[in-house]
Amino acid sequence: MYTQGLHTPDSPGATGAGETPELDARFQERIDREDRIEPNDWMPAAYRKTLTRQIAQHAHSEIIGMLPEGNWITRAPSLRRKAILLAKVQDEAGHGLYLYAAAETLGKSREEMFDELLTSKAKYSSIFNYPTLTWADIGAIGWLVDGAAIMNQIPLCRCSYGPYARAMIRICKEESFHQRQGFEIMLTLCRGTPEQKAMAQDALDRWYWPCLMMFGPPDSDSTHSDQSTKWKIKRFSNDELRQKFVDALVPQAQYLGLTLPDPDLRFEETSEPSPGGAPAGHWRHGPIDWEEFRRILAGNGPCNRERIASRQRAHREGAWVREAAAAYAAKQAERKLAA
């Protein structure tokens, strides 16, 4: 139930007021039982705060993510690609809206969250601060960025908070075509002219490391993780997901005939071989430049300012439209009363 209307500031769930060790313990028991927490259930204030921030961040990422890809709709090189890309970016708007709706059930209005994005008070995924310089970037984003997002999203379908989990289920259903369309673009380029193949390799060179950074800092560094894991908001660690991603990526890149820009990448066998007899293990990636990640997060990436400025401008220039809709609705309400 997404209803915000029931949620009054003085209901016990709202402020975590009356938080006692007993209530906390009972809440944790529910989590441990894999109960779903729903909007008007009692929850600790910290749970509400963390979730609101996480879901909002996720929503912001979808909305900002429309920009690097939307950049290429008008230049899509075939009508089929044009239609698919437009549908994909539209899906992203939809995902943002589902997520804002889920976050709103926790008590913060969409307008407030959106304002936080526009004033840079809220964060969004670092990956969208990179530019899309060629058509191959659109392929790389679908293949790598959406691939990474899917790794993160599937476990969230079992997140403890009902509205978030349900939004994620809906998103995951829609997301599967996103990665495939990206991979298909890369495949077409790699099978194309030498210039197209070079375009694909160049895109991979630029997107590989930022995608690895998408999973967040190494587990040893993460401060928020423990509580989020206990509350089943986060179901796998950053490093676990990052490893899964790389393991999936390597054979795909090999199939495409592309080289990952990671000279230190090597296969590390684990003790037991897999049933087929092939060596089991993991592809260990090279060292990540966490300085770049920190720089991007601090607002000094290639596109940080542009992304926000773009959305600010749209919001500002669209104010008269929103005002008109509200004014008309008010007039209609008056007319109904007068009738």
Partner: peptide, 22 residues
């Protein structure tokens, strides 16, 4: 219509314009 993507006055409206464009 596709030029509106990312620049609409309301997110729901970006979806609508995208739909018409498609």
């Amino acid at each position: 219509l596709s030029e509106w993507i990312g620049h609409g006055p309301i997110l729901e409206e970006e979806m609508a314009l995208g739909n018409i464009g498609l």
